[in-house]
């Protein structure tokens, strides 16, 4: 029992041991270290955001260019096909004297 009383007294003293605790100073280079870490983080943040944007823009330009080229190519092919067909028909009608048949009714 005496031991318990003594232990409780010591426990109470231990509980009071940090009552007058003093704040301690921080390392004077704290801000420099924080700044360095933030700068390093900023670099990391920029890469994943900026690079995909460049890539996406490049992909979009390429996609539009391919579409324009394909459209122009197909338009050109159609026009030349049309003129070839007209020439063939004219030659055929001349060979068989079909010119002006529609007027003989």
């Amino acid at each position: 029992m005496k031991n318990l009383k003594e232990a409780e007294k010591q426990a109470d003293e231990a509980l009071k041991s940090i009552d007058n605790i003093q704040s301690i100073d921080v390392n004077e280079f704290l801000y420099t270290r924080i700044k360095n870490r933030i700068d390093a983080l900023d670099g990391q943040i920029e890469k994943p955001i900026v690079w995909p944007l460049y890539r996406m823009a490049a992909m979009l330009v390429l996609f539009i260019a391919i579409n324009i080229i394909s459209y122009n190519y197909l338009l050109g092919t159609n026009t030349s096909n049309k003129s070839i067909k007209t020439n063939d028909l004219n030659t055929f009608s001349e060979d068989y004297n079909l010119q002006g048949i529609q007027n003989n009714y």
């Binding site: 031991n3 318990l4 003594e6 232990a7 409780e8 010591q10 426990a11 109470d12 231990a14 509980l15």
Partner: peptide
Amino acid sequence: AKLNLRKSLTKYYA
């Protein structure tokens, strides 16, 4: 918190 700390410290000192 104080009760738990007192109990734990008393146990240690005893």
